[in-house]
Amino acid sequence: MALPQPHSPSWSAFFEEQSSAARDERLQRFYAAETLDPDTPIANAPLVAMDFETTGLDPAQDEIISIGIVPLSLSRIFCRDSSYWVVRPTRQLDEDSIVIHGITHSEIAAAPDLERILEELLAALEGKLAVVHYHPIERNFLTNALHQRIGEGIQFPLIDTMILERRILEYQKGLLDRLLRRPSEPIRLGHCRARYHLPHYQPHHALTDALATAELLQAQIFHHFSPETPVGELWC
């Protein structure tokens, strides 16, 4: 399945096709929701920042263990409507990852399987444009998890603040930098935030990272794009 490319309006065609092609009722409903026109100015787009914590970085091996969701618009981030779930992976948690995200075995043991919260998760995403930092994690882990559970994956448009940051840095780089192939500046979430004078937040908590990503997007748009920038130029 080929993913639609930036500037192409085909996300809506893809959603329309999937609303009948998907077998799972929850996915049908998700795809049937109204999709955002690529010409919509970012200021008018309903957005939702999302972050996953995983047991590792390989979507084929590792699994999601927590999900943070924070809805926002370009001007406001709405913590009141945010969500956070810890979900139980099918495989054992190794000690290394516990050190990173701080979620313990007992929390995991008490947590539901991802399928039990799928309906809620899709409802939070429905009709909104998702915002993530480093999209391969969210895109691949979610679709794999669904394949594993209901036999089909999921795809939707995403704004990746890491991709935006790379574009911004490339643009800012002088010709000389490019000719000399000077190394790029780091583009981890914390590094990006520091460039916009955003405060340091403790990383690796899905809800905090979602909030951090939401703030970063606002900063990036106000500094380098405009409230009028069409979402089609930002999503992937």
Binding site: R76, I77, C79, R80, Y196, L198, A214, F222
Partner: peptide, 14 residues
């Protein structure tokens, strides 16, 4: 209170 605040960013000078 913290769970209900809203957050917003302003560029210098705005």
């Amino acid at each position: 209170l913290a769970s209900q605040v809203e957050v917003t960013y302003f560029r210098a000078g705005s």
